[in-house]
Design a protein around this nucleic acid. Structure first.
Lengths: 335, 335
DNA sequence: GCATTCTTTGTAAACGTTTACAAGAATTTT
DNA sequence: AAAATTCTTGTAAACGTTTACAAAGAATGC
């Protein structure tokens, strides 16, 4: 059994000062004399004192952590964003609590729970469908969104999805494609809406028409991409190129198309969205739009921290730039 | 501005009882009469009271959260494990703090920080190289390891890595392979050691020899797999099959081999380890060993929670079963 | 009907900090 | 040299809970 952990009392006793002085030495050293500072720090070292965060938080009326609510933790898309968040937060002594909105029963209920729980000083929401609930109730917590958003509601950090879609279309058109399809994300998802809208508009800009049955439904998952591949193979009048709302779908599409005997990019060109790591390791390597995920996490952390220190529930939204990455999954259409 | 948040005092006043009774109604209802219970609950509803976790934690001398230390949050391998952890923890009202050991400067220092910070009631360590540090200092915190381990040190939840390697070799031998290579993980990594040792032993069991230059160094990453592919291509006397210490390397290997014009499984068969999602979506789909990652997370959570409630720093280790998944990346060797 | 036990409630003391306020000492201003 | 200012420290009151202890009331046993 280790002996009892040292408290501020023990340090004060060891240094021969009051607990107030100890506290001040640690949190606002400017107001305490050099001499006492050193003796206090010595006492801290001697006793092995570590501040009790819980007590400190209680007194300061804060929790020292923020909570990230992701739709599905098992989705690797979020891991880099969380890494960005984490790195910024730990620098300023904040903890990062992570919870999954889909894992339990009722996502709305979970959200409400975390909003009211007082477990955190701020909340980052990655699930656009939940944001309405936040607006309904008066919130005593700064809340922002990341990746997804809700028009005119919460502050958010997002990527320039429209620009990404436009770059994808431009690239395909430059390669001579006229018949371009789209593998969509979940219906109603803001990311999908932005990408699809910009996709359609870009086509029109190039005086190309959009064939309704070349818009394949999907849900961002690899399985959805594979399903789209099967539908594509079954068509007689096929697009020669596909823009996918996510890299995962692009990977799923390419894999299944190859399984079924077609060739990428000879038979069909593919552009993804996100730049997940595996994209450059499949054959052919995936042409895609990079979302700076780590940066999104970092910016989100800063935004939320600013709101917390200003104890404000509103703040500026930010759009981070995307980048086009040209690899091997696009070629001129077969003639 | 919303009005001040209600405290237990407000509830007590509204219900006409003492704060002790309110507290008891909420935490140990069995000792309070039915009548007062209902009036207290009514008051809770009226005031919109939510318990202040920080205060509660301070008084109960706990923090209500556990911290997971992962080597690299951006590695998708961990996301499903974290999902498993999270689901168990939230059920019992615990929060999950997540931190990255590699992101900052000194991993050892970070670990020490979290061990002493008092921010959590327990710690899950996913980084085997750090475990020595834990043993050095007297720890006042239950600590367990997951995935990786350290012989005879901390309680751990791990997969049966040796069995996995054996299954892989058996499968390849059944398909008629005699010349089998290994793409290794980081030198010194326990997972790699277990898999490599079992790989070698299994070969010997089948009276096959191990060719030293057929053991390709690697570090679990896709890039390492691609590098191994280039070395494999450059050899004149090549193995006809490769067992990879991770799926990521297997995927990287297959992608690069295809890039360079060879065929899988016609020219070389590949078996991975982990069963990451993308494995079934590449062409050919990857034969592999499944690690039940979600389950590892869940078991780890339970183990740690048990240790916390017993306030013990030791506990049982557990090995979870793996499963062989046969897909398309293995065929009979070319004759 | 009195002694015993069981239920239910309240009082008050923690838990370990931070910080407003006050006060003494040291320094500067006049 | 007195007055005014600045520095440095201590005292004590929070922050919002939980829980040991005591007490009062109700139920039970004889």
């Amino acid at each position: 059994m280790d002996k009892k952990i040292a408290t501020i009392q023990d340090v004060a006793r060891a240094a021969g000062v009051s607990i107030a002085t100890v506290s001040r030495t640690l949190s606002k050293p400017s107001v305490v004399s050099k001499a006492t500072q050193t003796s206090v720090l010595q006492a801290v070292a001697d006793t092995g004192y570590r501040i009790n965060t819980t007590a400190s938080n209680l007194r300061r009326q804060r929790t020292g952590s923020i909570i990230a609510l992701v739709p599905n933790l098992a989705n690797p898309f979020f891991s880099q964003i969380l890494a960005g968040l984490s790195s910024v937060l730990t620098q300023v002594g904040f903890g990062l609590l992570i919870a999954d909105t889909q894992s339990g029963t009722d996502p709305d209920e979970r959200l409400a729970h975390y909003l009211a729980s007082g477990m955190a000083d701020g909340l980052i929401l990655f699930d656009g469908t939940l944001s309405r609930k936040v607006l309904d109730q008066p919130r005593r917590l700064p809340v922002i969104m990341a990746c997804e958003w809700m028009p005119g509601s919460l502050p958010s950090i997002t990527a320039d999805n429209r620009a990404g879609a436009e770059l994808a279309v431009n690239h395909l058109v430059e390669y001579g494609h006229h018949d371009i399809g789209y593998i969509a994300g979940p219906v109603g998802n803001v990311l999908n809406i932005a990408r699809q809208d910009a996709f359609v508009e870009s086509l029109t800009k190039h005086s190309l028409s959009v064939q309704p049955d070349w818009i394949y439904e999907g849900d961002f998952s690899m399985d959805a991409g594979a399903a789209a591949a099967r539908r594509w193979m079954a068509m007689t009048n096929r697009p020669t190129a596909l823009f996918c709302a996510s890299d995962e779908m692009a990977v799923g599409f390419i894999g299944e198309v190859q399984n079924l005997g077609a060739k990428v990019p000879d038979d069909v060109s593919v552009v993804g969205f996100d730049n997940i790591e595996v994209g450059q390791h499949i054959t052919p390597a995936l042409t895609t739009i990079r979302q700076p995920r780590k940066r999104i996490g970092e910016r989100a952390a800063h935004l939320l921290l600013d709101m917390i220190s200003a104890s404000s529930t509103s703040g500026p939204s930010e759009v981070v730039d995307i980048e086009f990455i040209s690899r091997a999954s696009v070629a001129r259409p077969a003639t």
